[in-house]
Write a protein that binds this DNA or RNA. Sequence first.
RNA 1: GCCUCAAUAGCUCAGUUGGUUAGAGCAACGGACUGUUAAUCCGUAGGUCCAAGGUUCGAGUCCUUGUUGAGGCGCCA
Length: 477
Amino acid sequence: MAKRTEIKNLLAAPKVGEKYLVKGWVRAFRSNRFIALNDGSGANNLQIVVDTDNTAEELLKQISFHACVSIEGTLVESQGAGQAVELLAEKIEILGANNLEEYPLQPKKQTMEYLREKAHFRMRTNTFSSVFRIRHGLSYAVHKYYNDKGYYYLHSPIITGSDAEGAGEMFRVTTLDVDKPPRTEEGAVDFGQDFFGKSTNLTVSGQLQGEIAALALGKVYTFGPTFRAENSNTSRHLAEFWMIEPEVAFNDIVDNMDLAEDFVKYLINYILENYPDDLKFLDGRIQDLEKNMKKEERREMGLIDTLKFVIENDFERITYTDAINLLRSSKPYKKGKFKYEIEWGKDLQAEHERWLVEKKFKKPVIVVDYPKDIKAFYMRENEDEKTVAAMDVLFPGIGEVIGGSQREERLDKLKKRIKEMDIHEEELSWYLDLRKFGGCPHAGFGLGFERMVLFITGMSNIRDVIPFPRTPGNADF
RNA sequence: GCCUCAAUAGCUCAGUUGGUUAGAGCAACGGACUGUUAAUCCGUAGGUCCAAGGUUCGAGUCCUUGUUGAGGCGCCA
């Protein structure tokens, strides 16, 4: 009797007539009689019926929004329509009273921007608790997918001494006194005296280390925090985000695309199967939001229908060259609606990607074989000597979710590329060694974890799918 | 980094052509309520109109600069 039952478990197998002890936070207290109690175990609340006549007034007053309570009682079939069972309270204890005069949250709809400022309380809302339960489910599914397929989880370093990862601006890691750092004779900051005896940064990618592991363990993946000091002000970018990077020996670009598609579909399916209540809540939330919008601004499908559609249909696969040709014969191109030029050799702009995904194919699209001059040095050159075996997976509403490639395993080609792109070869000697000594074809990609959470939860800003977002000018909590 | 828009009560917003005492809904607080599901009903209180400067007899309203936020773009995942 004294043992607490979690609400999710109680609701999954309710025993009418049994006594239960539950603990949680008051989501609503209606009619001085009904508590909607949630303990975080799931999206659904347990309705508690309070015996108003036999409960002290002082105690009743403390049962307020987001107060923490412990309740013992008997489970009965509900007389109300909103739930099958409810708990008749026999003993109520206030574990943590709330002071509503000062509490910033209210039992009503609040904007995401406001809740973002109250990140220490926002997880108590229906929306954020669902988002973060799904985020957990997704990260578990990532490990399950790879473990079941025989991949090894590689812990790539967070602090890196390599500045040749080539994925963006880096955050410096140093213990030097920033006011008066030691100087060399030439006047430059002397990082030889820094903690690691050299200049170090936070990682922007675990890919190069992933390649080291793949050439020994065969199939590996990394899943860890990644840092980019880019001044990116969008709803799809974070300065600190989590990235999943599989790297597989003997895979070519087609195997790589197959893996990416299978992996993403697995993740979506896992959440559909294991988090139906949270998805249902988020789906309803979006429909609610869109009620007041014009028809053309609404999504064509609900959240759950969209997710099902994605896993039931093949992703469209198209070469960069074909994509350019398609775009050049598109209606918006002929009408001059695109802001940016469409020309072979230039990168596809967001407006072009959106047309391909949302208008032309209406499903995820994998674009492959990009011009080599707009891609990274390590991507494998194709036979045409103009393109590389690079791929981007584009999702509706979000854009690039995955970027990957087959890696250049031919030493001479790789060296030539490094020289052409003006990268210091000494920095990468260990990377070149992988080609010199027992190398092999291999491929991999990076999946932006938060972008996946964004797609699956239907949230619109990436800052609302990571507990404590770090963006330019913002590192609170 | 660039472009656009916004900032008024705890929250979400309205505020006419520059004009007297800045409004509403919700939340809070006080009260009522034994079947609620965004509970409902009655009442009370709540304002440095983002900041600084300027124009004007007079600025929430117009101008300049700044700050913060949102959306879009670029960079990418």
